[in-house]
């Protein structure tokens, strides 16, 4: 089929079930915001679980969270915030049709994402090496000894806290992985020079997604690592 009515205004990626490119871009953006709403609601379940556990076992949560590495968590926060900035820059360059600069910014964003996961890997293996495994695989004696050596002592059921820690940061990590996937996708498209004539919706939507991944971490970090 062909909608030959307004060829001048249409970019190469115009889909013909829309009447105008504006309608297409608006739909894409609205769809993304709705998707982000579902993401927030999904994580809200985990946050609720966290608060319930906190209310049930306040002393346990307090004594357990001391074992999380605040420095590494802090580094990761800075890394993610930086990546959000470069992502925003990438969106700006895509709006201007500057595919080359857009690709560069996306590369930096990707690098940040990998650094984040690398730090997370170090944190996880550190925990595992001291018997802090998720849930039923938690080694009490080993973990308690480790806590002692750091001047803390566990109270109650620390495996519940660490179980939640692994689930929350694990699910967030899965989202970072998905983010890497979609950033690579827009990176390749930028390399191909797709973003021009006012067509930049994919970069913008990937950007929105990446910001929500960042935002979830902004809540995870203080709740798990910092709050007394």
């Amino acid at each position: 089929m062909g909608d030959h009515a307004k060829p001048a205004k249409n970019h190469a990626f115009f889909q013909h079930h829309f009447n105008t490119v504006g309608q297409q871009a608006g739909a894409a953006k609205m769809g993304m915001w709705l998707f982000l709403a579902t993401e927030v609601l999904m994580f809200s379940g985990l946050f609720l679980a966290y608060f319930v556990v906190r209310a049930l076992y306040p002393e346990m949560v307090l004594s357990s969270h001391e074992l999380l590495d605040k420095t590494m968590g802090g580094i990761n926060t800075v890394v993610l915030l930086t990546s959000s900035f470069t992502m925003a820059m990438a969106v700006r360059y895509a709006q201007l049709g500057d595919n080359k600069r857009c690709a560069t910014q996306l590369l930096i964003t990707l690098a940040c994402a990998f650094i984040f996961l690398g730090v997370k890997y170090v944190e996880y293996t550190g925990k595992f090496s001291h018997g802090i495994f998720p849930g039923g695989y938690f080694h009490y004696d080993e973990a308690a000894q480790y806590a002692h050596s750091h001047g803390h002592s566990f109270r109650g059921l620390p495996h519940v806290f660490f179980g939640l820690y692994f689930v929350m940061t694990g699910l967030h990590g899965v989202h970072v992985l998905a983010g890497i996937g979609v950033i690579v996708w827009v990176y390749l498209r930028a390399k191909r020079g797709d973003f021009k004539d006012g067509y930049y919706a994919p970069v913008e939507n990937v950007g929105l997604y990446w910001h929500i991944v960042d935002l979830v971490w902004i809540f995870l970090f203080p709740l798990l690592y910092l709050v007394k």
């Binding site: 679980a49 319930v52 556990v53 049930l56 076992y57 998720p134 849930g135 039923g136 695989y137 109650g156 059921l157 495996h159 519940v160 179980g163 939640l164 692994f166 689930v167």
Partner: peptide, 13 residues
């Protein structure tokens, strides 16, 4: 993984 969030035997609710 038996993280103990729902099962009372493991500390869950």
């Amino acid at each position: 993984l038996m993280i103990g969030i729902f099962d009372p035997a493991m500390g869950g609710d």
